[in-house]
């Protein structure tokens, strides 16, 4: 009884950048040399020494390298833009829970949210993938996943409209689909959840909040009483349906709870 034997160290491990790949306009993958034991949908804390530390989804895992993928929006991602082969980056994790890969699945990804579900796409056997963005420039991984159903708000690529329309069609035609895995803007997730409920299909969504520690301590990533970094970031339909703050509120860097609209206008 009362032993401290579970004490552990969780320091960033330093990896070297092996290559940088442009995925779309303002979207890059940073590949790091080394192994990462990671389940689909997990994330890492990325430390740029002397700059900042931020959570990033693990977007790709290969035999001797792994990647995170980002859309340049603020000071941290702009610092990522300066990374070159051989640069050193600190990595903690992987953290968080993971997607279930044992069901017949449709993956629905909005914009850069695809980088949070790409390890699930890689792990599933022949999933249907629906990827949407506001326009052609914001579609990601169009070369990596050639058979995706694409949608754009303005019709500049794929079909004009939202991912939810495409999802309803797929679920209408394929009665054997058991679950939907999704990540993207939170209102999209809410709408995907509605479609899933209508068709009686399970849904697992990866949520996003401003996260400071990844240790379950700072509280900034709370959604209701769920601590996103340790309880999530993936939640199933049963929990998503009960969330009071889903699609409505999120917390700024200061911890102040604001409307999702205000949160997104700050996040860019």
């Amino acid at each position: 009884m009362g032993s401290n034997c579970s004490l552990k160290t969780e320091l960033p491990v330093i990896y070297e950048v092996s290559r940088v790949v442009q995925e779309a306009k303002d979207v890059h993958s940073i590949f790091l040399k080394g192994k990462l034991d990671c389940k689909p949908g997990q994330f890492i804390m990325v430390w740029l020494p002397g700059v900042e530390e931020k959570p990033m989804a693990v977007s790709e895992v290969r035999k001797d390298e792994f990647a995170f993928c980002y859309h340049s929006v603020g000071p941290f991602t702009q610092a990522c833009d300066a990374l070159q082969k051989g640069d050193k980056v600190g990595i903690r994790g992987p953290y968080g829970n993971s997607f279930s890969l044992d069901k017949k699945t449709v993956v629905v990804a909005g914009g850069i949210g695809i980088s949070s579900v790409s390890t699930a796409i890689d792990g599933l056997s022949s999933p249907v993938v629906i990827h949407g963005a506001r326009d052609k420039d914001h579609l990601v991984y169009t070369k990596r996943y050639k058979s995706m159903i694409l949608t754009t708000d303005d019709g500049s690529a794929g079909r004009k409209g939202y991912v939810t329309g495409a999802l309803a069609e797929v679920l209408e035609k394929n009665k054997d689909i058991e679950q939907v895995i999704t990540c993207g803007p939170e209102m999209m997730i809410v709408n995907v959840l509605h479609v899933c409920q209508k068709y009686g299909v399970e849904c697992e969504a990866s949520l996003e909040r401003y996260m400071k520690c990844g240790y379950g301590i700072c509280g900034n990533c709370l959604v209701d009483d769920k601590i996103l970094c340790i309880d999530g970031p993936i939640f199933n339909s049963r929990i998503l349906k009960k969330m009071k703050e889903l699609g409505k509120f999120a917390r700024l860097k200061t911890g102040r709870k604001v409307s999702l609209k205000e949160y997104y206008s700050w996040r860019g």
């Binding site: 552990k8 160290t9 969780e10 320091l11 960033p12 804390m45 430390w47 700059v51 900042e52 530390e53 931020k54 400071k212 520690c213 240790y215 301590i217 700072c218």
Partner: peptide, 8 residues
């Protein structure tokens, strides 16, 4: 600015 926490 982060890192805000580190477990030693």
């Amino acid at each position: 600015p982060g890192p805000n926490m580190v477990v030693i």
